[in-house]
Design a protein around this nucleic acid. Structure first.
Length: 506
RNA sequence: GGUGGGUUCGUAUAACGGUUAGUACUCAAGAUUCUCAAUCUUGCAAUAUGGGUUCGAUUCCCGUACCCACUACCA
């Protein structure tokens, strides 16, 4: 049987990095098994729909190199009409609404579900009432006996209500006392007694849409999904899903399940939320996202991360191959991924490690590619330089940077004379005797190499003289080697910077 | 509250019941260099807790503590 997995996001906002990781693990699993990775948009909650979220999700996955085989076309659009490549279209549940009702009614006919006529207000009242007594209201085998549904109302009235009202739902008739035995690819065997579960709504007449549970099971079945890999927040509804497969008689083709651990905040307790990023200065989202109230949330892409670094970091958050390898290309991830080695506990996200990954990828990127990314930044700073020269600069500085955007700050003095000098360094190195020696050494030599020889030959203090020169050339006493700097700016420019410094600093 | 899941250095994790409990990030020190960064070396630092099973438990079982999720006509 061909492996088919799906990523089924809800377009209720930007996809955060935890969601990207879920998609990634699905993708890796599919590719490793030579199967299909499918995208399905679960937009059965019309109230929470956020415009742009669907496109954001697909764009994010594309940026990460997570390309769906089915559900989304080459242009990044969700497929709406069936074709050989996308036989299960449409892939948006709101556009599949016609198919779910009959499945809901099939369950009612078989006695696995029933019609419920309680209004949301009356249920709200039940909840409040229970709460005031310190109890929790649950719609289950006990309470349904006293509520308005097709189990309690006379058949005549049920028929009438079904036809004349639109405020009813189909609820799953949770067995009263049955142990559901389940298996999870990550967590192993799990058992739950149905006595603690409630009668979940499966389908709503009001908008003629299924809820997550029904849509999910029906679509996974119709789309021939073989493994469901999703977040841990779904583990509590796994018994319901098992029971639904059983009720439909789809037990033999039921997918296997894997529930991924959550991504947690770097410090403190709780799961990673979009606010954490702003508070602690790291992105939570793959791409920038502009909120409806004008607020922008940072994305890894815009903050300067390489998509491969982001993906690599994400892959290692909750999974590792059991070896000491940390750097993986997408293909290597595909080859070595295994769902059994995914850890069971939530992982605190570590922003430092994310930066480390980017630094490693920066080093692995060729000077030529980095130069191409750097040239526009040089442009912005009013510098035009030919690519060959930029490549040479990049080669010198790439080990000192984490992001390409760091480059300018590290090497601007190779293109422009410093406008100001770091006071602390001035105090330390700009002393009359040092300045005198610096001038003597530079004026009497033609290049950096001979200058260094001269300093040595005349037994001048190398550190003091060089740092004095560096201060004049770069504006600070830290940075590249003097020889490297002078190779780029030339001896004459160096001398003129020395003179300029003497004018400004005395 | 109830149900389910989880718990190895600060963080991510490794260790098919037998290891001086390993690695990476962070941090600190040293080496190196004209400075800084990089690099190299070294160091700090963990099996939540109490029982049990076993010759032997980080690993298996039970209790406790703590953390997380779920408990909607949301996903």
């Amino acid at each position: 049987m061909r492996t088919r997995v799906r990523f089924a996001p809800s377009p209720t906002g930007p996809l955060h990095m935890g969601g990207v990781r879920t998609a990634l693990y699905n993708y890796l699993y599919a590719k490793q098994h030579g199967g299909d990775f499918i995208i399905r948009i679960e937009d059965t909650d019309s109230h929470r729909f956020v415009p742009g979220a669907e496109k954001y999700i697909i764009d994010s996955l594309r940026w990460c190199g997570i390309i769906p085989d089915e559900g989304v076309d080459e242009n990044g659009n969700v497929v709406e009409t069936a074709s050989p490549k996308h036989p299960h279209a449409p892939y948006r549940q709101s556009q599949r609404r016609g198919i779910y009702r009959k499945y809901a009614e099939e369950l009612v006919a078989k006695g696995y579900a029933y019609y419920a006529f309680d209004s949301s207000e009356s249920l709200e009242n039940e909840r409040k009432e229970a709460e005031s007594k310190g109890e929790t209201f649950i719609y289950n085998y006990e309470s349904r006996k006293n509520l308005r549904n097709s189990l309690t109302l006379p058949e005549e009235e049920v028929k009438k209500l079904l036809q004349e009202t639109t405020d009813w739902t189909v609820r799953f008739k949770m067995p009263e006392n049955t142990v559901v035995k389940m298996d999870d690819m990550i967590r192993g065997h799990i058992e739950v007694n149905t006595a603690t579960l409630d009668d979940k709504v499966l389908w709503k007449r009001a908008d003629e849409l299924p809820t997550y549970h029904l849509a999910n099971i029906v679509d996974d079945h119709l789309m021939e999904i073989t493994e469901v890999i999703r977040g841990e927040e779904w583990l509590p509804s796994l018994p319901l899903h098992y029971l639904l497969y059983q009720a439909f008689g789809w037990k033999d083709t039921q997918p296997r399940f894997a529930h991924l651990p959550l991504l947690l905040k770097p410090v403190g307790n709780g799961k990673l939320s979009k606010r954490d990023g702003d508070k602690m200065g790291f992105p939570v989202f793959p791409l920038n996202w502009l909120n409806s109230d004008g607020e922008t949330y940072h994305g890894y892409r815009e903050d300067g991360y390489f998509p491969q670094a982001f993906v690599n970091m994400l892959a290692m958050l909750g999974w590792n191959p059991g070896t000491e390898q940390e750097l993986f290309s997408m293909q290597e991830l595909i080859d070595s991924f295994s769902i059994e080695k995914v850890s069971k506990s939530g992982a605190k996200f570590n922003p430092d490690k994310a930066k480390w990954y980017n630094k490693e990828y920066l080093r692995m990127t060729s000077d030529s590619e980095l130069a191409e990314e750097f040239i526009p930044i040089l442009d912005e700073n009013g510098v035009t330089a030919d690519k060959e020269k930029v490549e040479a600069v990049v080669a010198l500085i790439k080990e000192r940077a984490t992001f390409v955007k760091d480059f300018w700050g590290i090497c601007s003095y190779l293109f422009k004379a410093p406008q100001e000098y770091v006071q602390k360094d001035v105090d330390k190195f700009w002393k009359p005797e040092n300045v005198g020696m610096a001038f003597e050494a530079m004026e009497n030599t033609a290049d950096a190499a001979s200058m260094e020889e001269y300093i040595r030959a005349h037994e001048m203090p190398m550190g003091k003289v060089m740092n004095c020169i560096r201060l004049a050339l770069t504006g600070a006493s830290s940075g590249l080697g003097i020889a490297d700097i002078m190779r780029f700016i030339g001896r004459d420019e160096a001398l003129s910077r020395l003179k300029a410094a003497r004018e400004k600093l005395g």
